[in-house]
Computed example of a mutant assay.
Amino acid sequence: MAGKMDMASDDGLAAAKNGYRLSAASPTLPAGKAAAYRFAITGPDGKPVTEFSVEQTKRLHFYAIRSDLTGFQHIHPTMAPDGTWTAPLTALQPGTWRMYASFTPDSGPGKVQGFVLSTTATVPGSASRVTLPKASGTTTTVDGYTVTVNVTGRPMAGMAQPLTVTVTKDGRPVSDLEPYLDTHARLTAFHAGDQALAHLHPETEVSGDRGGPSLTFHAELPKAGDWRLFLQFQTAGTLHTAAITMNVG
């Protein structure tokens, strides 16, 4: 996979790395309504980067999540000729949000190197913190689907382990998962302590236009503690997002 990163050494919490920087047009966003978040990626020469490699069908993946790990959004923004990206965010609740850009430059000194850069944005208003669900189980539900996460043994920080996700509905295995971004599901994790981001890369090959019910991911979470996992999968043209908390020792 082009631009695949070593997430053990790149947690996505910095706004700049190796001369590349994520710069936002504004540090604040309105509450309770859709908003356009504009930003640019500048290179070591200080100029906006406009050439990006395609990774999982997109030149840049953008994520937004509140400090309590609620309100997850995964967006594919559009870029203007001058290098300005626009991410169309749905309504945000008041609080502090972290915005991530995951990309691989297709020119310059960072060519073929994957980056995740992030910065924070404030949404004014009275913020009510949501308590993260405890990592007490391996099953969650979304839109009528049941998602079960299994790891062999206790997940340990920095240790690569296979992680299997199984999708069922009404007690029956789901085998009509449609390709989404060149995979049958995408799994993104955020650390509850500091919002570090990790991609859990799929190992199940996409074959044909249907997949499931079980999918395997390469899981290597770099820090101990609770992680909030967001699984995105598509059926009948509809994208579903399931969330579950997993503890790493």
Rank of each mutant, 00 (worst) to 15 (best):
M1K: 05
M5R: 10
M5T: 01
D6T: 00
S9Q: 05
D10V: 00
A14P: 00
K17Y: 01
N18V: 00
R21F: 01
S23E: 05
P30H: 03
K33F: 00
A35W: 00
A36R: 10
Y37K: 12
R38S: 15
R38Y: 03
A40F: 01
A40Q: 13
I41K: 03
G46L: 04
G46P: 02
K47T: 02
E55A: 14
Q56R: 15
T57R: 09
T57H: 05
T57C: 07
L60T: 07
R66E: 11
S67R: 15
S67E: 15
D68P: 12
D68I: 08
L69V: 09
Q73W: 03
H74D: 06
H74I: 06
I75N: 11
I75P: 06
H76G: 13
H76F: 11
P77C: 10
T78N: 11
P81M: 05
P81L: 04
W85D: 02
A87P: 05
P88T: 05
P88Q: 13
T90K: 14
A91F: 04
A91I: 03
T96I: 07
T96D: 08
R98T: 05
F103E: 08
P105D: 07
P105R: 05
P105W: 02
D106N: 15
S107M: 01
S107W: 00
V112L: 06
V112T: 08
Q113D: 09
S118A: 14
S118G: 11
S118C: 07
T119G: 14
T119S: 13
T120I: 00
V123S: 12
S126N: 10
S128I: 04
T131V: 10
L132M: 14
P133F: 10
T140M: 09
V142Y: 12
G144Y: 11
G144N: 10
Y145G: 05
Y145C: 02
N150R: 15
V151P: 08
V151D: 10
G153H: 07
R154A: 15
M156S: 15
A157L: 09
L163V: 05
T164M: 06
V165N: 13
V165D: 12
T166V: 02
K169V: 02
V174Q: 12
S175K: 14
E178H: 11
P179K: 10
P179D: 06
Y180V: 05
L181D: 12
L181Q: 13
T183H: 06
A185T: 04
A196H: 08
H199L: 13
P202W: 02
P202V: 04
E203S: 13
E205C: 01
E205W: 01
R210L: 06
G211C: 10
G212A: 10
S214T: 13
H218D: 09
H218K: 15
E220I: 07
D226V: 13
F230W: 14
F230L: 12
T235F: 03
A236G: 11
G237H: 09
G237V: 06
G237Q: 09
T238N: 13
T241D: 14
A242Q: 11
I244C: 11
